[in-house]
Every structure is written in structure tokens, then in C-alpha cells.
Simulated scan of single mutants.
Amino acid sequence: MTSTAVPTAVVVDGAYELAEGGRWADGRYVYVDILSGRLFELRDDTEPTPRQLARLDVPLGAVAPVADPPGAWIAAAGTGIALLTPDGALEWLDRPEDRTPVPSRMNDGVADPAGRFWAGSMAYDATHGAGSLYRTDPDGTVVRVLDGLTIANGPAFTADGTLLYLADTAAGTILRCRVDPVSGDLLDGPETFVQLHVGEGSPDGMTVDAEGCLWVAMWGAGAIRRYHHDGWLLHTVTVPAPHPTSVCLHPSDNRLYVTTARYGVKSPTAASGAVLRLPVPVRGTAASSWRGGR
């Protein structure tokens, strides 16, 4: 395992409270500021002026593009899953977290290669075991796939859609499940892929690179980790912010984009609550689309 500090650029100094969910979609980098319910896009980081695409009156955990109609998004927002139109209107598919015993919200989410949308949830006070993982099928049905989680975060898929990685941030655990790419059913219970220890930070947003390795934002550690698919830690990159929240690899060149948070930082710098960019030796893939629609 190697650990390095590489030149890191602050692409957007947005002073975001909790920037998250960075994805490369339709030739642009999109991300959210969860607690303010805002969605942003960045089309050209040589002129880093992000454009606000939407502002909701509920927290916005993550989005994925909708295959049809173009310009629409599926969103993990508030207490459920909704379609977000290009003009910013919401059409709710389901609000399963309305039916939970403690106040909760949706968190990170991603579309899989087969066109389903997966998103986690958490209690506002991080009640142990109150979080779940949901799958939204192309017909709009929302299914609870796993429960008993605490802060369900960073779902990420391999390119063939057969492996799902999921972080339970509060537990310091990265889980892995085999998935039937046709039905979306889990073929076995989640296995522990990595168990972090006190002082290592907590796993947050994740992505799988073009070589099948897993990149993990390490909340509280100011670091990004890259794991081999067999669980070995390959590399650690430090970043100038204590709370990196999501990682996104550019699909056509060797750049890693990292969102960070100001939340919980006593003496934040310009890199806390920002979008960062740094060189890496591998590329990623563009975000998959949800293949539903109305």
C-alpha cells in the first residue's frame, strides 16, 4: 500500500455545508448540497462557475439522469424517491421514510448499469439500525432491499452490474453484495468487504474505476482510498479537507473529483465545502441512467 499527497486544485469554492453525490453524467459533473436541497452542474472546470439546476424544499441526497425524457433526474430526496423535471418540479414515486419510527431522510444514491436506481437512508440523529437501502425499478416501484443499516452511503456498482458496494458510514463498514443484473435481486446477504478501525476515518461516497477497483471517500480522515476487488488497500491519497464526501473519476482522462463538507469542521479552509480535483492513474465511467420515465 502506498500513501501520497498529490497536487489538489479547488475547482469550486462553494462553501457548501454538505456537498455530496458527485457523478459524471451527460458530459458534465453534477453534485448536490444535501441540506440545502440544491443540485449543481459543472460543464467546464477551466471556467469553474457551477450552474444551479434545482433547489428543493427538502434535503437532496443524490440524483441520476433519467434516460427518457432527457434533462430529467431521479432523486433521493426528503423521505423518498422522486422524479425531478428540467424545470425543477418533483413527482414523488414513494416516500418510504415517512413510515419509519424516527425522523429520517434519504442519502446517497446511484443508478446501476441495468437502469435501476439504488439509494440509502439514515435517521437525522443517526439512530443505530434506522437506515435502509432502496431499489427503484424502471416501472417506478420502490423496494426496500436492506434494513438495519445506520448511515447507508455511497452505493457503487461494477461495470457489469453484478457487484454492489455499500458503505455503512457509522459502522465503519463497506459491504458487498452479489446482484442478479436481470432482476435486481440480491443473490446473497451482504458480506463485509472492508472493516475500518477507530482513527482510520469513516467510508462515505464510493465509485468503481475502469480496472474494477473501489475508491472511497474517507470522512474524518482527509483521505481517499483505493481498494483492489479482493479487499486489499492499494493506495491512499490525502486531500486538504477533513471531510471528503464523494468521489468521481472522469470517464475520459485521469482526473478525480471530490466533494467535501464544512459540516462539523471547526476551522474550515477553502477546501472544506468545495469541489476538488486531483490527478490519478486511472479513469472511471459515466453515470448510468435510470431507465424508467413517464
Rank of each mutant, 00 (worst) to 15 (best):
S183L: 10
G184L: 03
G184S: 07
G184D: 00
D185Y: 07
L186Y: 01
L186T: 07
L187P: 01
L187K: 10
L187N: 01
D188P: 02
D188C: 05
D188I: 06
P190S: 08
P190E: 09
P190A: 11
T192W: 00
T192V: 14
F193K: 04
F193H: 09
F193C: 08
V194R: 09
V194L: 08
V194Q: 01
V194C: 04
Q195F: 01
Q195P: 04
Q195T: 04
Q195C: 03
H197E: 06
V198H: 11
G199E: 06
G199C: 05
G199A: 11
E200S: 11
E200L: 08
E200T: 12
S202W: 12
S202R: 15
S202A: 14
P203K: 13
P203I: 13
D204Q: 09
G205E: 12
G205A: 11
M206K: 11
M206S: 08
M206H: 11
M206P: 05
T207W: 00
A210W: 08
C213M: 12
C213L: 07
W215K: 07
M218L: 08
M218S: 01
M218D: 01
M218N: 04
M218Q: 01
G220T: 04
G220S: 13
A221S: 15
A221W: 04
A221D: 13
G222K: 00
A223T: 13
A223Q: 11
I224P: 03
R225Y: 05
R225C: 05
R226M: 00
R226N: 00
R226T: 02
H228S: 00
H229P: 15
D230N: 14
D230H: 11
W232I: 13
L233G: 03
T236W: 05
V237L: 15
T238N: 03
H243W: 09
P244M: 12
S246D: 06
S246N: 15
S246L: 13
S246H: 14
V247D: 10
V247I: 14
C248Y: 00
C248P: 01
L249F: 14
H250K: 15
H250L: 06
S252L: 09
S252K: 04
D253G: 07
N254L: 02
R255S: 15
R255I: 14
L256F: 13
L256K: 12
Y257E: 06
Y257K: 10
T259P: 06
T260V: 09
A261G: 09
A261L: 12
R262T: 12
R262V: 02
Y263K: 15
Y263D: 15
G264L: 06
V265S: 08
V265M: 01
K266G: 06
K266D: 14
S267L: 02
S267T: 14
P268E: 07
P268R: 07
S272T: 07
S272Y: 04
S272P: 04
S272W: 02
G273D: 13
L276Q: 01
R277D: 10
R277Y: 07
R277H: 12
R277E: 15
P279E: 15
P281F: 03
P281C: 06
P281T: 10
V282T: 14
